[in-house]
Simulated scan of single mutants.
Amino acid sequence: MNQLNLNNYKQEIADLYTRRSERYDNSHWHWRIANHLVEYGQVSPGQQILDIATGTGHCAIAAAQLMGETGKVIGIDIAPGMIIQAQNKAKTLSLNNLEFLLADAENIDFPENHFDRIFCASAFIWMSDLVKSLLLWRKFLKPGGILGIQAFAETAFVGGVITQKILEKYGISYLMSQPTGTVEKCQYLLEKANFELIEIQVEQDGNYISLEEAQKMWAGTSHPAPGQYPHPLSKLSTEQLKQAKLEFENELKVLQTDQGIWNDITTFYIYGRKPINLLQNF
């Protein structure tokens, strides 16, 4: 497998997800999200489909199974471990219309006007430049082709929400899902990248988790920060970091109920069409 020439930010992401690759399928959660994204995306036999940041291939496999023997699905990811897992799954399922490639979603070169559908689940906020990425991906869509992206509301994941609140006191902006965190923000991003007929499905989701589980959501500096490099927490001194974590844990204790701590996971399924009228494509 060819090595990618990644910057430090992307190399950290690739390393993180390669470490997670063998356990990534232990949860059905990612599979369910990918299935919904593909299901709402109106996949049909014979289509050409690109799955960006494919991970272990959830969207790509769901699309390939819907298409039967016709058409072609390509899944790309920057994490070698993820690609290996995806390739093994495709082989086990005998899916011959499916290919997985090690590639950087912000530095890809496919034929223009080639794909009927492009999907990106659970990964859009990791892109360095959201609008630039959308414009690049749009180039590869056929006129009338559809882009489908899944993202989380800014209220999602209690650990991230509380981390943001604490870090604001230290003058630090920690983005997490904020760039895609509302329906209006998602609409704006796709409009800015010249997509039309934008539709956003909102799925309310969440569950109660224990205090211990919530405390494990502390960002720390060992986990890359989506869309931000160097890590925002690296601006804090060791003492400030220790204090911020203590404040984080205390905030969570306040949220505790008899059922646990509510962990919102409101999810957006965002779709936009590349204009059929070629004049709108510029």
Rank of each mutant, 00 (worst) to 15 (best):
Q3D: 12
L4W: 08
Q11H: 08
Q11L: 13
Q11P: 01
I13A: 11
R19C: 03
E22T: 15
R23W: 02
S27H: 12
E39L: 10
E39M: 11
P45V: 04
Q47G: 05
I49G: 00
D51H: 06
I52E: 07
T54G: 11
T54R: 09
I61W: 00
T70S: 15
V73R: 01
I78A: 11
I83Q: 01
I83W: 01
I84H: 12
Q85Y: 10
Q85L: 09
Q87L: 07
N88T: 11
A90L: 11
K91N: 12
K91A: 13
L93V: 08
F100P: 02
L102N: 05
P111I: 03
H114F: 15
H114R: 08
F115M: 08
F115D: 05
F119V: 03
F119H: 09
A121K: 13
F124Q: 09
I125G: 01
W126Q: 14
M127K: 07
S128R: 06
D129V: 02
S133F: 09
L134F: 10
L135S: 13
R138C: 09
K139H: 12
F140P: 04
L141H: 06
K142C: 06
G144R: 00
G144C: 03
L147D: 00
I149S: 05
F152H: 12
A153I: 00
E154P: 00
T155S: 15
T155C: 04
A156N: 01
F157T: 04
V158D: 01
V158N: 04
G159Q: 02
G160P: 00
L167D: 03
Y170R: 02
I172H: 02
I172T: 03
I172R: 01
S173T: 14
Y174A: 10
L175V: 05
L175Q: 15
M176V: 08
Q178M: 11
P179M: 03
T180H: 09
G181D: 04
G181P: 10
T182V: 08
V183W: 12
E184A: 15
E184H: 12
C186V: 02
L189N: 09
L189P: 10
L190F: 15
K192H: 07
A193Q: 08
E203D: 12
Y208A: 04
S210T: 15
A214F: 07
K216S: 07
K216E: 11
K216A: 02
M217Q: 14
G220M: 12
G220A: 07
T221R: 13
T221H: 04
H223N: 10
H223L: 09
P224T: 01
A225R: 00
P226D: 05
P226S: 09
P226Q: 05
P226V: 02
Q228A: 12
P230A: 03
P232D: 02
L233A: 02
L233S: 06
S234L: 12
K235R: 13
S237N: 10
K242R: 13
Q243W: 05
Q243D: 05
K245A: 00
E247H: 10
E247K: 13
E251F: 12
L252W: 11
T257W: 14
D258C: 00
T266V: 08
T267R: 13
Y271E: 03
R273E: 14
P275Q: 02
I276V: 13
I276E: 13
N281I: 07
